[in-house]
Structure formats: C-alpha cells, structure tokens
Design a protein around this nucleic acid. Structure first.
Lengths: 147, 147
DNA sequence: TGATTTTGATACGATACCGTACTAAATAAT
DNA sequence: ATTATTTAGTACGGTATCGTATCAAAATCA
C-alpha cells in the first residue's frame, strides 16, 4: 500500500469516530434522563433479533466486555424495561426478556427520534444512506471476523 | 440479516457506532499502556493541523466538552508528549505544543499501526475508502452545523 | 467417579468522559 | 471609566465503561 493511502485509512476511523460522537450526543440529548444510547441499543437488539438472549450473547453482539453488559442490564432492569430470568438450559446463565414497558419505550423512542433523524435527508438521501450502511456493514463484519 | 425492521437512518448510526467500537478497541489494544486513542488522535491532529492550538480549538475540532480536553491534556502533559504554555494573545488561554517525544511517539505509533490498518484493504480498496471518507465528512459537517 | 479446566455472571476498583459551578481575563454596554 | 456580559480554562462530582478477581455451574478428563 502506497504511503499516500495510509493517512486515508486513519482518516476513515477518525471520521467515523467524530460522526459517532456527534450522533451519540444528539441521540442521548433527546432520550429521557437516565436512559442511555446503550440502553436503547440493547432494547432495539432484543426486539430485532428476539429476546431471551443471554448476557454473554449480548456482549458478543455488541463487542463489549461482559461486565459492561452486566451494568447495562441492571440499569434496564431498574428501569423496568427487561426481566432477567434464569436460563433453563444452563444454571450459570440468564436470559433477558423484554417487558411490555420496554417494548413500548423502544417504539416510542423511535417514533420520537425519527423526525429529527429524518432531517439527515437534507444532506444525504435514502439511497445514498443505504449504500453507506451496506459499506459500513461490510467493514464491520470484516473487523469483527479479523480481530 | 439487514435490520429491515429498523428505519434506515437508525441503522446508519447503529453501524457507525459498532464500527467505531471495533476500531477503537483494535487501536487501543495496540497502543502502549496508559495511552488512549484520544491521546493519539490529539497528537495526530496537532501534527496535521499544526501545534500551538488552544484547548478550546481542540474541543471544537473533536466535538467534545472542554473538560474532556482538559483531561486529555493533563494526561499528554504527564506523558511528556505536549507542553502547555500561556497564550500570548489571550492571558486566559493556553497553547498546546508538541514535544520531541510527542512527535516521536506519534510517528512510531503510526508506523506500528500501519501494517494492521493496511489489512483493511482486504475488504475495502483506497478508492472506496476515499469515497466513504468524503460521505462521512459531509455527514459530520451537517451534524456539526445543524445541532 | 472425582479432580481439573472452562465458562457465565458479578463485585470491586480504576479511569475516561461529561455536566455544573467557579475563577480570571477579555469584551461589550452604558 | 465602570459595570455587565461573555469567554477560556479548571476543580469537582457523577456515571459509563473496562480489567481483574471471584464464585458457581458446566464440561472435560483421568
């Protein structure tokens, strides 16, 4: 790889970092006090993939240490958005189930945030976003696989 | 398994978040103990843009609270990578200057990280990365402006 | 079978980051 | 010129995340 390309790959992660920074801040500001973007992401994941996941599965999915997931789940439990039940298949383990309140919160959060998020259309139309998402997904999968 | 369930614009920030997560973890793992990705980014910025920047300029560039920059700079100062000197133009302010050790560290870090970073080429060639960077930059500027 | 290793989860402590409140200096207003 | 407002930086406290150590339950093995 030519030297001239190198800074480019650094810049890629640099830009991603700043966009994430801005996106998270924007998001968090519009979520109710005490609910983090991580909380929202977990609820989202549980609805998308399906609930009953174990903490460890979540840690793998989000690529964070399992202690972090523990912290998320105690928060979500306190908020009344999930229930932690013993895992019938493995008595060391647990399963995370969404409550009605959790599902409702997630749906409302999406509804509340969507209008603001849709403003991104001003700078990038859906086709382009779809393309961007596809490329990022490819990159994500590679990073995940080749660790 | 694209999350067709999740609105497109949510998926965008979701993917960006995960890629950032993976990228940061990957970087951090290869940096010496006590040096964070943030530290590296600041050194990088100071060499790219040029040193003598004020803390507030850095906060704006990275879109983080100024208290966070304060924290970064005390760390970098302790590491001996920057010097904080009074700003001759404004006695409330400071200027951040790179030390020789700071420059050397940054250069070595880049040299050390480059081979791994180059592997990303397996999944995305420079042209595509350049395109991706341009789009993310456009998105970043919009997010920054329309807050 | 009993002993050893591995695995899922948490307790605990460290730290990175953020928000609020404060000080000092610059700028604006009167 | 005096006062009021804004601005640059930091101290301090809170919290999200992470690493290490620990415990209990599998899984492996001898």
């Amino acid at each position: 790889m030519p030297d001239t390309d190198l800074p480019l790959y650094f810049r890629l992660f640099n830009e991603i970092g700043i966009v994430d920074q801005l996106g998270r801040a924007r998001f968090e500001k519009r979520l109710p006090q005490g609910v983090t973007v991580s909380h929202f992401s977990v609820l989202n994941h549980l609805m998308r993939v399906e609930d009953g996941r174990t903490p460890l599965e979540l840690a793998r999915a989000f690529q964070v240490p399992k202690t972090t997931v523990s912290h998320w789940l105690t928060g979500l439990d306190t908020l009344g958005f999930v229930n932690l039940r013993p895992n019938p298949n493995d008595r060391r383990s647990k399963q995370v189930w969404l409550t009605e309140a959790g599902r409702a919160f997630r749906d409302k959060a999406i509804a509340d945030l969507a209008p603001d998020l849709a403003r991104v259309k001003d700078v990038m139309d859906p086709d382009e976003v779809a393309d961007l998402v596809a490329r990022l997904e490819r990159l994500r999968i590679w990073l995940d696989t080749n660790r």
